[in-house]
Nucleic acid binder design. Structure first.
Lengths: 64, 64
DNA sequence: ACAAAATGTCACTTATAAATGACATTTTGT
DNA sequence: ACAAAATGTCATTTATAAGTGACATTTTGT
């Protein structure tokens, strides 16, 4: 189950996986894993991603 | 920096740390660490806690 | 006041998020 | 069509979330 919401928000912000990774202080592979789904990132990383993309946790990481 | 929001939500739901831990499938110590702060739980655990307490990620885990 | 329940915290172990380096494939721009 | 950038994915290592068992302290109910 892919996380499309992050990818959409990232593309809207016009940043590559590598750029987003640098902005939040992780590697490109970690961002790739999150967008690929089947991954369980830490709260801090989720929060960091939200802040650089101007979204909230509910926007990007909440699943019914 | 303690996470008061979780503790408040937990007490409102009238469950002990141990009960909440059982409800989300972790140990009491893990819940204790989260409420104590200075901890970085996984997204899945955050989501599980939100669901059993009828809250959202933004409710319990969003800072500023 | 007392016992029981709940909480705080410790040391140690186990599971897994995240890092690293690499290479193949896909997408994008000219 | 071509090169460069971006993405997907692998194997291995490192950092840390979470588990386990234990004991001390605090809170709660009677």
């Amino acid at each position: 189950m892919k996380n499309k919401k992050i990818k959409i928000a990232r593309v809207e912000a016009d940043v590559s996986q590598e750029k987003l990774a640098a902005m939040v202080g992780v590697t490109r592979q970690t961002i790739n894993l999150i967008e690929s789904g089947n991954y369980n990132p830490s709260l801090k990383l989720c929060t960091a991603i939200c802040k650089v993309l101007n979204k909230t946790l509910d926007d990007l990481f909440w699943e019914e």
